[in-house]
Nucleic acid binder design. Structure first.
Length: 586
RNA sequence: GCGCCCGUAGCUCAUUUGGAUAGAGCAUCGGCCUUCUAAGCCGAGGGUAAGAGGUUCGAGUCCUCUCGGGCGCGCCA
């Protein structure tokens, strides 16, 4: 319908623009059809006369009159009015609106599906938390956002792959292994194990150590007095840790160290996978950082940067001159100890993404990574890749509160709230919705106390309740044989849907595909939550004001049953995109 | 100190990327179940959009400055 209004206005604009003494081309004017703030003003609205006022040196009202006078008539447009200071408001005929219901009933799960993606390939990377501990509530927002964004893109006709980058190489993983090993030694009966402050403290380390002990007994054991001394209170705990890592690798040898390492990695990664799956998040790829080190992959990339004159040596290290590409400072690629930085492998990872030939590469990062955007873009551009394919979406932190008290969210320290705990406490459905209903670049307060308390008041139940209500009515309609038969041409009854509540519902149903389109363009997923809340509200209002089953006229009842069936379809489709179920009973 | 994000009702957040009278939920107060799900509906109060300038037909939205909050500024990952 928007297209109809657009085309009519375009035709009229071409005509009237010739009447004004102007060099303006109609193609330079952007005609945007929107919805008026108040439905009494019309079904669609356009502000083009306001835009034109300056160029044509005429009042918006005059221009609006001119536009309307030259507007071709159209069977679906009932009337056109000028509103406010010059808005052109379209009123669509009732029949044109109610046609939508039948189209929704036919399309079912596919109503709202778009083809705008044209099969374009998108790689969407999100969460990618280090596998050094369980996911916590801080990861939940990215997980919910990424998976739902993927759903929406797919629904809009894109071919989306979801990917998790597994940081299974590097020092943090060594520290994890050390942490497990020390706990394991404790379980072997060694007394006075000195557990470093900068090792991983969480209880899950004990669990992994227990697995290790169960499966390998004392195979990796050593007397505690032979371990290097460790003083957690000194200033150089990091270098002490490095010594400890060196000692451990030397003592266990590659084969045994690897067993400890793999046991830790596998346990944690499986836990993460299971966690995400139960949170409604599924990945296509789990990309291992380790495989980037195979071959001379990274060498090649650094050489290429070299050829492009983007690197230099300083203080024994190899630097990337990212300042030339807009970064605030240059970055090290190879440290003076010849080891690669995290950044270097990250470049290699992104080169790998480019080699896999996607139309769009989207990263969802926590807002704490914003400092990395400039260097990553600099690297991509310096390697001659198409930067326009690359997009980073920052998801702001959800700061966690329990009442007034803010909770720490570190996996190193003792207390943190895991995603699993959150699921157990408030459920996947409520948790996902809670995360998604806020604009992702908005700082968000996640109050656990509130989230738990609010289980009853959570908007997700409000929406699901609307769906369950409809299901219940439809079920009863069938039982009492009050529903139309499939042979009926139900379209003939739709003209009876003349109440305001019914018209509001139809208007809302029509907006669903527009929401999908808008989210693809803006990634403003939260608006889908608001949209569904609005639709649910209209349904509840309708329900409370209008008899459906108890309506004694068959034709009116049929029309209303068809209407709420369409509402149920849209609610279900929308909830599914958010990763939520549409309950049939509550 | 520099950079990024943000500041809207008592609280949590919207405002369709610059449009018409800034809206929801929670909380507070008052109504509605003998009838299709009361996890619902109806009504009331609540605003200098942090503040000050600027841009234009028009600003919560864009620009500048000030104030306030979060995050980032390693040869850590």
């Amino acid at each position: 319908m928007k297209d109809v209004c657009y085309n009519l206005l375009q035709q009229s604009l071409d005509i009237i623009i010739k009447k004004y003494n102007t060099t303006l081309q109609s193609s330079n004017i952007k005609i945007v059809i929107s919805n008026p703030v108040d439905q009494n003003l019309g079904d669609y609205s356009c502000n083009v006369s306001l835009q034109l006022a300056k160029h044509l040196k005429d009042s918006p009202l005059n221009i609006a009159h001119n536009l309307i006078d030259n507007l071709p008539s159209h069977p679906m447009i009932e009337k056109i009015e000028i509103g406010g200071i010059g808005f052109i408001n379209f009123f669509v005929s009732h029949n044109a609106k109610t046609d939508l219901i039948e189209s929704i009933l036919n399309l079912k799960n596919d109503y709202g599906r778009l083809k705008i993606g044209e099969g374009q390939k998108i790689l969407l990377e999100f969460v990618s938390a280090n596998p050094t501990g369980p996911l916590h509530v801080g990861h939940g927002r990215g997980a919910a956002f990424g998976s739902s964004l993927a759903s929406v893109f797919k629904f809009a006709g894109f071919a989306v792959e979801c990917e998790y980058y597994v940081n299974d190489a590097g020092r943090q993983m060594d520290i994890l292994s050390i942490s497990v090993w020390l706990r394991y030694l404790d379980l072997c009966g060694e007394k006075n194990i000195n557990f470093p402050k900068n090792a991983y403290q969480g209880d899950y380390i004990w669990d992994i150590a227990a697995t290790l002990h169960r499966e390998y007994n004392d195979r990796f054991s050593i007397e505690s007095n032979k371990l290097p001394k460790f003083d957690s209170n000194s200033d150089d705990i990091e270098s002490q840790m490095d010594e400890l890592i060196f000692f451990c690798k030397d003592f266990l040898q590659t084969r045994n160290f690897d067993i400890v390492f793999q046991t830790a990695l596998k346990t944690i990664l499986n836990d993460i996978k299971k966690d995400l799956s139960l949170f409604g998040v599924e990945y296509n790829n789990w990309f291992s950082e380790k495989i980037l080190f195979a071959g001379n992959h990274i060498d090649k990339i650094i050489k290429k940067l070299n050829i492009n004159k983007r690197t230099y040596k300083k203080d024994g290290a190899l630097w990337f001159s990212s300042t030339k590409m807009g970064d605030t400072k240059d970055r090290v690629l190879i440290k003076d100890n010849k080891q690669l930085t995290y950044f270097a492998t990250d470049i290699a990872y992104h080169v790998d993404k480019y080699q896999r030939d996607y139309d769009q590469i989207i990263n969802i990062w926590g807002a704490d990574h914003h400092g990395y955007m400039a260097r990553m873009r600099a690297a991509i551009a310096s390697l001659g890749e198409d930067e326009s394919k690359f997009k980073i979406i920052l998801v702001q932190f959800a700061s966690l509160y329990r009442g007034e008290i803010q909770l720490p969210m570190t996996t190193r320290g003792g207390e943190f709230v895991t995603l699993k705990e959150l699921r157990n406490e408030i459920g996947t459905e409520a948790a996902r919705f809670f995360y998604l209903m806020r604009k992702c670049d908005q700082h968000m307060k996640f109050d656990l106390k509130l989230a738990k308390q609010k289980t009853q008041d959570n908007p997700v139940y409000y929406i699901q309740y609307a769906h369950a209500r409809i299901c219940s009515i439809l079920k009863k309609a069938k039982q009492e044989n009050k529903i139309y038969s499939s042979n009926d041409n139900i379209q003939q009854y739709f003209h009876l849907l003349e109440q305001k509540t019914e018209k509001d519902l139809i208007a809302s149903l029509e907006k669903f595909p527009q929401q999908i389109n808008m989210i693809v363009n803006t990634t403003h997923l939260h608006k889908l939550c608001y949209y569904l809340q609005q639709l649910a509200k209209l349904l509840h209002i309708f329900y409370n004001s209008t008899p459906i089953l108890s309506c004694d006229r068959n034709d009116t009842r049929y029309a209303r049953l068809a209407l709420i069936s369409a509402v149920a379809i849209v609610l279900k489709n929308g909830l599914k995109l958010l990763g939520l179920k549409a309950a049939e009973k509550m």
